[in-house]
Computed example of a mutant assay.
Amino acid sequence: MFLWALIVGLSFPAVGLMSEGLPPLFLTAIRFAIAAAAIGALVWRTPDHWPSPPGLVLYAVMGLCLAGFFGAMFWAAHQVTALSMATLYVSVPLLAYGLGRIIRVERPDGGLLAALALGAAGALWLAWAGNSGGNGSLQFSLGEAAFFLGCVASALYPVLSKWGLKRGWLSDSAALRTFWSLLAGGVLIGILGLAFEPAQALARLTFFDFLMVAYLGIFSSGVTFWLMQRGTGVLTPGAVTAYTYLVPFVSMLILFAAAPDEIGWLWLPGSVAVVLAIGLMLRRSANAPREAPAMQT
């Protein structure tokens, strides 16, 4: 999950390097196709690789969650900063815990809820610091709102994975679960692209853009969701997504290296809150094997 956080943190600046005006739905479909092809080549010869009918429906819903998040990311890439997207993405653990409680894949846990709320508060402060320009005014544009809805979809993905695993609808293989959800999402988002986006807009796709899409497909989609599925098999959705708290620091380091003058004391309160939340989650992770060996097994 540390590796997952590093890859996700690097993906936000990578999206911002792509050309403007590219169709986000088509880009997401291509990204999913590349990721599914890379993982499919590794798992296709495994036994029982075909999902059951209920599992196929659930994979389609999970694929739409992925498509909603990545479509929002591509759409918002040139309207909000990479740091704003990274910090808003830190709301995912709290959202995952709340959604998990609703469908009963999370147990009541006041300590976990407090740590998640602290991290979410710090992330929102960092998002405000990144958009206020030091003038104290809160700016929350349409781009941030759209990306936040994408974060809700992203939070729902591990919750549905855990729900399907508990009912035996999904494969025990993390790679197979990743493959089918990416494949289903790619097909569905491609259909939406044909309905709502001009296909000729893909003519603007440069060779560099294609390399970026391939990188995001293989690493930021395929590898990261395989890692998340690995974690979902043994942890709750809230605990898995709690590693999101590491994501904004990757983007902050990139911003500091590129434009150190943009980071000032206004960032301190949010940074302290996120660091404390990370420390609490790491402490909980270290104590988890002794406190709940049955759950770990």
Rank of each mutant, 00 (worst) to 15 (best):
R290S: 14
L124E: 04
A129Y: 09
L211K: 01
R104C: 09
P260F: 13
R101Q: 14
A195Q: 10
A214M: 01
I102G: 07
A77C: 10
L66E: 04
Q229K: 01
L202I: 08
L27M: 10
L94E: 04
R177T: 15
L66D: 07
S91D: 02
N131S: 11
L88D: 02
T236C: 02
V274F: 01
L235H: 00
L211W: 03
G186E: 02
G71Y: 05
I218D: 10
V223R: 05
A96P: 11
M73R: 05
L205Q: 11
G9W: 07
F32W: 06
P24F: 00
Y245Q: 13
T244W: 02
S181D: 12
R45G: 06
V92I: 15
L25D: 04
G130E: 01
A129I: 03
L268K: 12
S251E: 01
A123N: 01
V80G: 07
K166P: 00
R177M: 14
P158V: 07
S171M: 07
G190D: 09
G264R: 13
A77H: 13
G55Q: 08
P24G: 07
A29H: 03
A277M: 01
G55V: 07
L42R: 09
L194D: 07
Y157L: 13
V234P: 04
G68D: 04
R290I: 08
F26T: 15
G100Q: 10
W180R: 11
G130C: 04
L138V: 15
L22V: 10
W50H: 14
A77S: 15
F26M: 12
F147C: 13
L149I: 14
F140G: 03
T224P: 03
Y59M: 09
P289G: 12
V250L: 09
L124I: 11
L266K: 09
S173Y: 06
A175G: 09
A115P: 02
Y89M: 06
M18A: 15
A77I: 13
L282P: 13
P23D: 11
L268F: 11
P237L: 05
G164K: 02
Q79N: 05
S171H: 12
A123F: 01
P53F: 05
A5K: 15
I263C: 05
A86S: 12
V57A: 15
L64W: 00
A145D: 00
T232P: 05
E291Y: 02
P54F: 06
R230N: 11
A33F: 04
G71R: 08
V43H: 09
G71L: 06
G100E: 11
A60S: 06
I34W: 00
L170C: 12
A121P: 01
F140R: 08
Q79F: 01
T224M: 08
S221P: 03
W180I: 15
L138M: 09
P108N: 01
T81A: 06
L268D: 09
G119S: 03
A72F: 02
G21C: 06
I102T: 13
A82H: 04
P293T: 02
